[in-house]
Design a protein around this nucleic acid. Sequence first.
DNA 1: CGCAATATTAACCAAATGGTTAAACCAAGG
DNA 2: CCTTGGTTTAACCATTTGGTTAATATTGCG
Lengths: 203, 203
Amino acid sequence: MSRPEKEAGTEQRILAAARTVFTRKGMAAARMQEVADEAGINKALLHYYFRDKQRLFEGVFEGSAHKQFDCIWGCLKESPGLFDGIRSFVAAYMDRMIEDPMLPLFIAQEMNRDPEGLRPFIDRGMKSRQRFVKLVEDAHARGEIIDIDPRELLVNMMALCAHPFIARPMLMHIHGMNDEAFRRMIIKRRESVAEFIIRSIRA
Amino acid sequence: MSRPEKEAGTEQRILAAARTVFTRKGMAAARMQEVADEAGINKALLHYYFRDKQRLFEGVFEGSAHKQFDCIWGCLKESPGLFDGIRSFVAAYMDRMIEDPMLPLFIAQEMNRDPEGLRPFIDRGMKSRQRFVKLVEDAHARGEIIDIDPRELLVNMMALCAHPFIARPMLMHIHGMNDEAFRRMIIKRRESVAEFIIRSIRA
DNA sequence: CGCAATATTAACCAAATGGTTAAACCAAGG
DNA sequence: CCTTGGTTTAACCATTTGGTTAATATTGCG
């Protein structure tokens, strides 16, 4: 008995490989063989650690969803005022996207494929949603912002952050950008989006 | 010889069925058999009209992409001033999404899977993009709006319109909405989004 | 060492899936 | 009415793919 750390090592290596493949191709198009190759192991070993494709996928999806939503709710939490909250939210969210550009499309794709089954995985830190609502209501009460549904504001914030990554190939084509130009656009957005939002809600 | 209209009839029925299935499940997860069932025909007949899955998919994707981009560029074209242009753009785009809620995610998904191969299909009406740039520059010259990169503005407009549909299951869960509540939210956005944008660019 | 538990692999299997074939069907024209 | 061309089908085929098995390697331990 005992599993010094090789098991954990292998398991982690598999998860990393699976994350790469699943995120790039989506659950449906991902092939177990490809995951095995990416991890440098035999296909049967996949089934030794993760009984079947579904469980492997869930292992990956859980991690991805947590990363994504921990980031979202996390940076909504610690914010003194609404405006700075928005600024830090956008910065943190965009940094997250820069690190994992495929994440939002991957999550949207899979949530759409199996909403029921995957709902549990995005049940995280939703309490801080209430904090955000409060933050908006307070700012409105203080006369700092116009009257806007906090949920609508949150949707707009997420839309403006995530959409460029979701629609990346389209945007690159429409605006004739290469990878470098896209990167520059994102860097610029990291600053401009927060101000775009703030201008539109300032009283 | 002759094909009175049954050929065209069948072909259209297949395309409609394929559009339903492909849009709902995506190319990778869609099954030819399911398309055949949906169209009420034999699987072999699919291959009679569309040689293989790839061509059938392209037939579907072309139609979807045209619908989407004709709408986008179309309503950017005929606009007297920028603000009314934005208002009619948002309204038209949202109407399009309401009619075909899965379209944006479908297109994003497939463009991401095969950017090279599908790029040709979104080469449409891009000339009116220039018209929009001009519209923005003129509005800025007249001092109506602040200095903003027209491309950035366009991205924001598309993001705010499309994202709720792309992230629909997530949003519904996060905000505890049912289908009816989601519908109401969209109806409301059809009005509010344009004003949200205009407020943020008005000089 | 040698035994037991775990880790890893090569070979294999059954089901699903995209695609083909050859025969039947059916409408129009001669 | 029967030939001819496009249309439709049932049966079939080859490959891919998720998953299993049984045997081998490795590791910790008494």
